[in-house]
Structure formats: structure tokens, C-alpha cells
Design a protein around this nucleic acid. Structure first.
Length: 205
DNA sequence: TTTACGATCCCCT
DNA sequence: GGGGATCGTAAAC
């Protein structure tokens, strides 16, 4: 059994450092439906003074969770269709966070596939009905769906019993540092990190 | 009060 | 490789 990261861990490192330290750690959700888990293989940092950061201008109703203590979950709706999940980093009250962009599934793959299949959009005629392992968590919207993370998780702490991140389960890998995906402002900043040659990463580059 | 747009995903060409 | 879906948020009027 792997240990879980503590509040101290989230407090002790900068958000940029956290973005890299979370690679190789396992995100676990013990839900009523069952347990799902996956190794974090891709992250992005959103920092103070960063124009792409949701907290760039000021604290609002949407981004309030970003100003919670390090180790808080920030879940938000994107494009009116999907949700993304972040881990709030320190220093506290700076509105910084780490976007979890991809997981390598380790537990509950069947449940993940079920959740992805049962998503309302997937029930539309002609929608994809089968998911290979690579399709479960290879993107920020996908992994939220597969892990059963919902808007109600916004503002919760990773100290909660049912949702947490473990200490590293793999450690021998190279980290690629590159630019973030899907943004216009701050696009040149090297704030994206992923495990080299891991097939569950959303995109190369 | 109105409007433009986004840290995405999936299907179609 | 490109575009449409879809809606809450926040900036602009």
C-alpha cells in the first residue's frame, strides 16, 4: 500500500515544483461506484502573474477554490461541456494550481470505461461505444469523466479519505518540459510537463 | 443586460 | 486536419 501525500507536501513546494513532483504519483478516487486510480503522467502549471491563469485578474465565484489551501481541488466547466481538475499549490492566496492533463490507468479500468460510455454525449446516436485503455484518461476532460470527478468536488481537500494522491509509484522516467496546450495568452511559457515516451500522455510536443 | 469566448472532445472529411 | 457542440462566466456596453 502506497502512502498518500499530506498537506505538508502541498505546502512545502512551489506550484511549479509540484507540477513536476506530481508526475509518477497516483490519483485515487474511492467512490460509491468503486475505486478508480491512475498515475499522473502529464501536468500544467498556472501561476501568479500568468495571463492564462483563471486567477490572473482577481478572485471570483468561479476561481475561489484556487485561493484555498495547497492541496485543494479546483474543478471547473470548460467549453460548456467538460470539466477539468486542478490541484491548488502555494503560496496560499496566490491563486496558483496544477492542471492534471493525463493519467495512466491502474485501477478500475472497467468502471472508467463505463463512466466514459455513459456520458450523455456518448449516448447520442452514432457516438463511440467502445474505449481502449488509451482513451480512458488521455486528456483533462477525459480523466475527470473516467475518475468520476464532478463539480461537487470543487473546493474539497485531497486530505479527504475518498480522494487523494499517493507518493510516487514510479520514479525512473525523464520529464519533458514544454509549452501548454489550448491557450492563447502565455502560450510561450514552459509550464507543461509530461513523462517521456508514456503512451497515455495527451499529445507529444 | 448583453455578448463573446474558453486550460476540450469527438466525428467527419 | 478542421469544425461544431454547448453554457457559465466575466468583460463590455
Amino acid at each position: 500500500m502506497q502512502g498518500r501525500h499530506s498537506a505538508t507536501f502541498y505546502r512545502q513546494h512551489s506550484t511549479l515544483a509540484l507540477s513536476q513532483l506530481l508526475l509518477g504519483c497516483e490519483l485515487v478516487h474511492e467512490s460509491g461506484e468503486g475505486i478508480t486510480a491512475g498515475i499522473i503522467v502529464e501536468t500544467e502549471a498556472y501561476l501568479w502573474g500568468d495571463p492564462a491563469c483563471h486567477a490572473y485578474r482577481k478572485k471570483t465565484a468561479r476561481n475561489a477554490a484556487m485561493f484555498g489551501p495547497p492541496g485543494t481541488l479546483y474543478v471547473y466547466l470548460i467549453y460548456g461541456l467538460y470539466y477539468c481538475v486542478n490541484v491548488v499549490g502555494g503560496p496560499e492566496d496566490q491563486g496558483e494550481a496544477v492542471l492534471i492533463r493525463a493519467l495512466q490507468p491502474t485501477r478500475g479500468q472497467d468502471l472508467m470505461a463505463l463512466r466514459r460510455t455513459l456520458h450523455p454525449k456518448s449516448l447520442l446516436p452514432g457516438a463511440q461505444k467502445f474505449f481502449g485503455e488509451r482513451d480512458l484518461c488521455s486528456g483533462p476532460g477525459k480523466l475527470v469523466q473516467a475518475m468520476g470527478i464532478r463539480p461537487e468536488h470543487n473546493g474539497l481537500s485531497l486530505e479527504e479519505p475518498a480522494i487523494y494522491i499517493t507518493t510516487p509509484v514510479i520514479s525512473t522516467f525523464d520529464t519533458v518540459t514544454t509549452t501548454r496546450i489550448g491557450i492563447t495568452q502565455g502560450a510561450e511559457l514552459p509550464y507543461r510537463f509530461y513523462i517521456r515516451d508514456n503512451k497515455f500522455v495527451s499529445k507529444k510536443g
